[in-house]
Write a protein that binds this DNA or RNA. Structure first.
Length: 767
DNA sequence: TACCGTCTCAG
DNA sequence: GTCCTAGACGGTA
C-alpha cells in the first residue's frame, strides 16, 4: 500500500538521479535530478499533500465533514483525510494508528494546532512539536517516503555538479571586516579567483560570485566550516551592500538557517545541497578537525602548500598577494579532495535512507539515519507505527571488561569478534518488541549481507578505482547504519522504536560470547591479558609466527555459533599491561603504541614523555639496564640543567579572570592563578598559560623558554612519581625501589643486570 | 561520580 | 517561517 501520490507526479517521471529536493510547507516540491547516463540536469516541479502519523483524530474533530476517515488513501477531492491503518484490530492507544493528510502540509499542521486549542483546552496555539501524539518528518522526507525514493540512485559521487568556494577576509566577523578574495572551483573544470583590490569592490565580487554560481548551477556547494563562517559572512556582507543573496535555485533563491540553539546553525539553500566537510571530519575524531590538519591526515595536502596564520593573511596580501592567491586556491583544492574522502559515506548513505544528502553529515546514525528507514517501512506497509516501550528503571549493562594479567608479556596477539553487536542482532534475531513487522532485524540483516558484497567489490581488482571507491563508500555507509542499530535499541526515549530489554539481550549475549572466546583460548594454553567487550589480548608465550597465531584464532572461531566470527586484529612483540584500557605495545616493526590516559595524558611535560618512551621501549625489550640508563640520563640532565624550562613546563587553562581572582584571592589562593597573578599578567577565563616550578619561587609563568632556572629537585621527584611509576607493574617491587628511589646501591641490592621484567596474573576479576 | 562551563572552527 | 537541538574535555563540588 502506498500513500496518495503527490498530485502532479506522472508515472513516467524518472525516479533515479535525485540530487536535491526542495519541499515547502505550501506543498510545492521541486526535485532536481541528474541523468545517470548523460549527466544532464533537469528539475521536476510537483506538489504533495504531506502526511503526519497520529494516534487519534481528536484534534481534528472541528473540521466536521471536511475530514474524512477511511481505511483507504485520500481521494482526490478529500480536503483532510485520516487513513485508519488498523480498522479491524485493537491497537495500543499510543500507537500511531492514523495517517493524516491535508491540502498542504501547512494547512494540515495549522488545523491540528487550531483544533488542539479547543480539544486540549489550551490557552495559546501550541507548536506542533510540543503536541504529543504526532509523528512528523521534514517535508523533503515526507516526499521521499511517500514516493518511495531516495537521493543519488544510479549516481556516483562526481556526477552531481560540486562547487567549492572559500573566502579570504580581513577579520573573522563580518561586523569588523570585509571580504577581499573568493576562490571558486567546481568538478567541471572551473578554477577562478574573484578579487577586490580596493574595499569599494567588495560588492562587485559578491555579485560576481552569485552570478557565477547561477551560471555553473551546482547541485552541491562545499567548504570547510561553511555553516559557521563562509555563508554567514557572505550573507552579512551581501546584506550590507543591499545585494539579494540569491544562491539557490527556486523561490527567491535565498538560503536560510535552521537554528538549533547552541550549535552553529545549519544553512539550507533551495535546490543546492550545502555540505560542510567539517561536519564529516568531526565524526572521525582526529586530533584536530581543521582543514589543513584533515588534508594532511588524508594525504591530500599539496607539496607546495602555503600555510598562513589567519591574522597574517591581510598583511601578506598587501605585500605578497601571490602567496595569498595560492593559499586560497589550495584551500578550495583541498576541500574538493577532502570532500571526496569524507563526504563519500554520507553521499552513499543518502541512497539508503529517505533524507536529503545535506542532512546526513549532521544526522546521528541512529535517530537521524536508521529511524527514518524504520518509519518508511511502516508507511510503505500501511501499518500503524508502534507505540513506544514503557519506561524502564534498571540501568542497561554494557560489555564485559577484565584484566587477566599485568606486567610485560611477550608475543602478544589481539583477536576480536567481527562486528559483534550487529552479528548478534542478526544471528539471534533480536529486535524491538514493538516492531511487529520485524523491520529492525530485517534492515540490520539485509545491510550486513549487502555490505559484504560491497566489501568484496571494493577489493575487486577487475573494477576501476572509481568503482571500487563507490563500493567502499557504500560498505562504509552500511557499516554506519548497522553499528548504530545496537545503540538505537538502548537509546531510551529518544528512539521511537527503542527497546532496553532487546539492548540488554545483545550485551548479555556479547558477554557470554566473550567468555566463550576467553575460555577457548585458555583451553589452548595461551595467557590472557585483557578482554574488553568484543576483543581480547593474549600472549602466545613463545614466538610461533603469525600464521600459527591466525590458525589458533580460526580454530577458536570455528567453535563459535553460526554468524559469529573471531578475527585476527594485530600482534606485537611485547605488551606492558598496566591497567584496564591502559597498555603499551611494542610492534614487531619497532613502533611503540601507547593507549589510555596513564600513557597519553595531555598534561604531561615534555621531559617526562621523552623519558617514558625511551624507558618503555627498553622495558618491553626486557632491557632493565636500559630502563635504568634512561632514568639516570634524565635525572642527570635535570641536575645539569641540560633541559630547558619549556621542557619541564605544562600548559594549564585559566578558570577565572584576573578581576574575579582579585575578589577571592584573600580567602583562598589557587596555585596556578597565583602564579599568573604574581607575574603581573592580565588573564581571562579560557586563557592557556605555560607554568613551571622555578627554583626557590614555586609555580611560575614560563617566560624564557630556553631558561634553566627550574627546580631540579622537584622535577626529579616528579619523574619518579608521575612517570617511573607507570613501569611498576613490570618490575619486582624491590627492584623498582632500587632503580628509582635514588638512594644508591646498597649492600643487599641485586645487580641491575640480573633484574628481569615480569608479569603476574590478576586473580580478582575486575568488576 | 556528576555536573557545569568552555572550546571546537573560520580570517 | 523552511528541515530541529554536538561532543569532548577539564575543573570543581
Amino acid at each position: 500500500m502506498r500513500l496518495p501520490a503527490p498530485d502532479l507526479t506522472t508515472p513516467s517521471a524518472p525516479r533515479t538521479g535525485i540530487v536535491s529536493v526542495h519541499a515547502t510547507a505550501d506543498g510545492a516540491v521541486d526535485v532536481w535530478r541528474r541523468d545517470p547516463v548523460t549527466g544532464e540536469g533537469r528539475v521536476q516541479r510537483t506538489r504533495q499533500r504531506g502526511w503526519i502519523y497520529t494516534r487519534n483524530v481528536d484534534d481534528l474533530l472541528h473540521l466536521g465533514s471536511r475530514l474524512t476517515v477511511s481505511s483507504g488513501p485520500a481521494s482526490a477531492e478529500a480536503a483532510y483525510h485520516a487513513q485508519d491503518l488498523a480498522p479491524d484490530s485493537q491497537v495500543d492507544p499510543r500507537a500511531y494508528r492514523y495517517l493524516l493528510s491535508g491540502p498542504s502540509p501547512r494547512q494540515l499542521e495549522g488545523e491540528i494546532q487550531r483544533g488542539a486549542v479547543t480539544a486540549r483546552g489550551l490557552k495559546v496555539r501550541p507548536a506542533l512539536g510540543d503536541l504529543s501524539g504526532y509523528l512528523r518528518l521534514g517535508y523533503a522526507e515526507q516526499y521521499l517516503i511517500a514516493t518511495g525514493q531516495t537521493y543519488h540512485q544510479g549516481l556516483t559521487f562526481d556526477q552531481p555538479v560540486r562547487l567549492q568556494f572559500d573566502l579570504e577576509t580581513t577579520a573573522l566577523s563580518p561586523d569588523e571586516g570585509r571580504l577581499f578574495l573568493i576562490a571558486v572551483r567546481d568538478n567541471r573544470g572551473l578554477e577562478t579567483l574573484l578579487e577586490a583590490r580596493r574595499p569599494a569592490q567588495e560588492g562587485e565580487i559578491i555579485e560576481a560570485f552569485l552570478a557565477l554560481v547561477q551560471e555553473r548551477d551546482p547541485d552541491v556547494i562545499e567548504n570547510h566550516f561553511i555553516h559557521g563562517f563562509d555563508l554567514p559572512f557572505l550573507a552579512a556582507r551581501a546584506r550590507r551592500h543591499g545585494i539579494p543573496f540569491q544562491l539557490g535555485r527556486s523561490g527567491d533563491g535565498v538560503p536560510w538557517t535552521v537554528d538549533d540553539g547552541s550549535r552553529v546553525p545549519m544553512w539550507v539553500c533551495p535546490g543546492r545541497e550545502i555540505l560542510d566537510t567539517l561536519d564529516a571530519v568531526r565524526r572521525l575524531n582526529l586530533p584536530s578537525s581543521g582543514l589543513k590538519a584533515a588534508a594532511r591526515h588524508f594525504g591530500v595536502a599539496p607539496e607546495d602548500r602555503v600555510y598562513l596564520e589567519g591574522a597574517e593573511i591581510v598583511s601578506t596580501y598587501r605585500d605578497h598577494p601571490k602567496l595569498v592567491r595560492q593559499y586560497a586556491r589550495q584551500d578550495v583544492q583541498e576541500v574538493d579532495d577532502l570532500a571526496r574522502i569524507v563526504l563519500a559515506p554520507s553521499f552513499a548513505l543518502a541512497r539508503l535512507t529517505p533524507r536529503p544528502y545535506h542532512r546526513l553529515t549532521r544526522a546521528g546514525p541512529a535517530k537521524g539515519v536508521l529511524e527514518p528507514m524504520l518509519i518508511r517501512a511502516y508507511v510503505e506497509a500501511g501499518r500503524p507505527f508502534p507505540a513506544p516501550e514503557r519506561g524502564h528503571l534498571e540501568p542497561h549493562r554494557g560489555g564485559h571488561v577484565q584484566l587477566h594479567a599485568e606486567g610485560v608479556l611477550r608475543h602478544v596477539v589481539k583477536a576480536d569478534v567481527a562486528s559483534m553487536y550487529p552479528s548478534i542482532i542478526r544471528a539471534e534475531g533480536i529486535g524491538p518488541r514493538q516492531d511487529e513487522l520485524g523491520v529492525f532485524h530485517r534492515i540490520v540483516s539485509d545491510l550486513t549481507t549487502q555490505r559484504l558484497t560491497h566489501k568484496r567489490a571494493a577489493r575487486d581488482a577487475t573494477l576501476s578505482g572509481a568503482q571500487r571507491r563507490e563500493h567502499h563508500a557504500m560498505q562504509d555507509a552500511m557499516k554506519l547504519v548497522v553499528n548504530a542499530a545496537y545503540g538505537y535499541l538502548g537509546a531510551g526515549r529518544l528512539a521511537r522504536l527503542g527497546d532496553r530489554d532487546a539492548a540488554d539481550r545483545v550485551t548479555a549475549r556479547g558477554r557470554a560470547l566473550l567468555q566463550q572466546v576467553t575460555g577457548a583460548l585458555e583451553a589452548r594454553r595461551v595467557q590472557l591479558i585483557e578482554s574488553d567487550t568484543d576483543g581480547v589480548y593474549f600472549s602466545m608465550g613463545g614466538d610461533v609466527g603469525e600464521a600459527r597465531e591466525r590458525q589458533l584464532i580460526s580454530e577458536v572461531s570455528a567453535g563459535l555459533p553460526d554468524g559469529i566470527t573471531l578475527e585476527f586484529d594485530g600482534r606485537a612483540q611485547a605488551m606492558l599491561s598496566h591497567q584496564v584500557k591502559n597498555y603499551v605495545l611494542l610492534r614487531y616493526d619497532g613502533t611503540l603504541d601507547l593507549s589510555g590516559a596513564s600513557f597519553e595524558s595531555s598534561r604531561s611535560e615534555r621531559y617526562g614523555t621523552a623519558f617514558l618512551r625511551t624507558a618503555l621501549r627498553a622495558l618491553l625489550q626486557g632491557d632493565v639496564p636500559g630502563v635504568q640508563a634512561a632514568f639516570e640520563d634524565t635525572t642527570n640532565r635535570l641536575t645539569a640543567r641540560d633541559v630547558t624550562n619549556a621542557d619541564v613546563s605544562s600548559r594549564v587553562r585559566i578558570g577565572k579572570a584576573r578581576s574575579d581572582y582579585a575578589q577571592t584571592r584573600g580567602q583562598r589562593k589557587e596555585a596556578h592563578l597565583e602564579a599568573v597573578w604574581q607575574a603581573g599578567l592580565d588573564f581571562r577565563v579560557g586563557d592557556r598559560i605555560d607554568l613551571y616550578v622555578r627554583a626557590g619561587a614555586g609555580l611560575s609563568v614560563l617566560t624564557d623558554l630556553d631558561g634553566r632556572d627550574y627546580d631540579a629537585g622537584h622535577y626529579r621527584a616528579a619523574l619518579v612519581q608521575n612517570y617511573a611509576t607507570r613501569l611498576r607493574k613490570a618490575l619486582d617491587p624491590a627492584d623498582w625501589e632500587q632503580l628509582f628511589s635514588g638512594r644508591g646501591a646498597g649492600l643487599f641490592d641485586r645487580p641491575v643486570a640480573e633484574m628481569r621484567v615480569q608479569w603476574r596474573p590478576v586473580e580478582d576479576a575486575a568488576r
